[in-house]
Simulated assay, not measured.
Amino acid sequence: MEIRKFSETDLWKPVRDFFVDKGYTVRSEVKDCDIVAIKDEELIIIELKKNLSVELLSQAVKRQKSADLVYIAVPKPKKLIGNSKWKDICHLIRRLELGLILVSFKGNNGIIEIPINPTPFDRWKSINMGKRKRENIIKEAKSRYEDFNVGGSKGKKLVTAYRENALFIACCLERFGELSPKKLRELGADERKTTSILRENHYEWFSNVKRGVYIISDKGREALKEYKELSDYYYQKIDDAFKGKVKQIEEK
């Protein structure tokens, strides 16, 4: 997070003055708490830090054992707000039921912004908001034939359901030569996606030799070598499960 060079003490006055203006009695450095604000029986604890960190979040969560509300106050970042990383951080803060105070300066005047208030987190609302993503995850997982990726790996091409389907088609074309989408489906290619995979030819693995008939391209053959484990699996699957259909297709 790229921010101006602040010390935690620079944040103290604007935050203190904000809560004083709201009618709270404010005291600083009370029992290891940076700032406490009290009004009637309500106790608020505010932790000041130069940047957001796991340590800060952990410290703030511990304060929830004693306080009614807990805020974390940090300098307002210049570039992070609005991007996906910032949204993820804000989601985590809401999930932990913490408040977020952003402090910036115009001259010597401190400016306080509170994008997140410490309110109870509605997990079911969050789940409903992510319903489409949940459905897509389940659909993708169920659409894959086997688990050919290594969890936690980076910088490698992932074997997605789409890539699996394309590789299966490539295996069929390499095994039997020219085939139509209909014949590929008879061999076990995806009922709904085969035609679009061939037509879009996203990986350039196929060549259209005549209307409605395809062969494997040189790039397709290279892909079969690159994904040898998966292509061998498909070859075996074709030979074992579709012997009768293979004979019929070869005779046509």
Rank of each mutant, 00 (worst) to 15 (best):
E2G: 11
I3A: 06
R4K: 14
R4Q: 14
F6G: 07
D10P: 02
L11E: 05
L11F: 02
L11A: 08
L11N: 01
W12R: 14
W12I: 13
V15W: 00
R16H: 12
F18E: 05
F19E: 08
V20E: 11
D21G: 04
G23K: 09
T25H: 09
V26G: 00
V30F: 11
V30R: 03
A37H: 02
A37I: 07
K39F: 13
I44N: 00
I46D: 03
E47P: 03
L48R: 02
K50L: 12
N51T: 15
N51P: 07
K62G: 15
K65F: 03
K65E: 13
A67W: 00
L69I: 10
L69Q: 13
V70P: 05
I72M: 07
V74E: 01
K76W: 06
K76A: 10
P77F: 02
K78W: 08
G82S: 11
G82R: 05
K85D: 14
D88A: 14
D88M: 06
C90G: 04
C90L: 12
L98W: 00
G99E: 02
L100H: 05
L102A: 12
N109P: 02
G110C: 04
I111R: 15
I112Q: 08
E113Q: 09
I114C: 05
T119D: 14
T119R: 08
P120H: 01
F121R: 02
R123E: 13
R123H: 13
R132Y: 08
K139T: 10
A141L: 14
D147M: 05
N149L: 05
V150F: 05
G151S: 13
K154S: 14
K154W: 06
G155W: 02
K156Q: 10
K157A: 11
V159C: 10
A161M: 03
A161Y: 01
Y162E: 15
A170Q: 03
C172P: 08
C172L: 03
L173Y: 03
E174H: 07
E174M: 07
R175C: 11
G177F: 06
G177S: 10
E178R: 09
E186W: 00
A189F: 00
D190E: 13
T194G: 04
T194N: 01
T195A: 15
S196V: 13
L198F: 10
N201T: 12
H202A: 14
Y203I: 05
E204R: 12
W205V: 04
S207T: 08
N208F: 11
V209W: 03
K210D: 09
R211S: 14
I216C: 07
S217N: 14
K219E: 04
K225N: 15
K228W: 00
E229V: 15
D232E: 12
D232W: 01
D232R: 01
Y233K: 06
Y233I: 02
Y234S: 04
Y235M: 10
Q236F: 05
K237Y: 08
K237P: 00
D239H: 07
A241H: 04
F242V: 11
K243S: 14
G244A: 06
V246C: 10
V246R: 01
I249K: 00
I249T: 04
E251C: 09
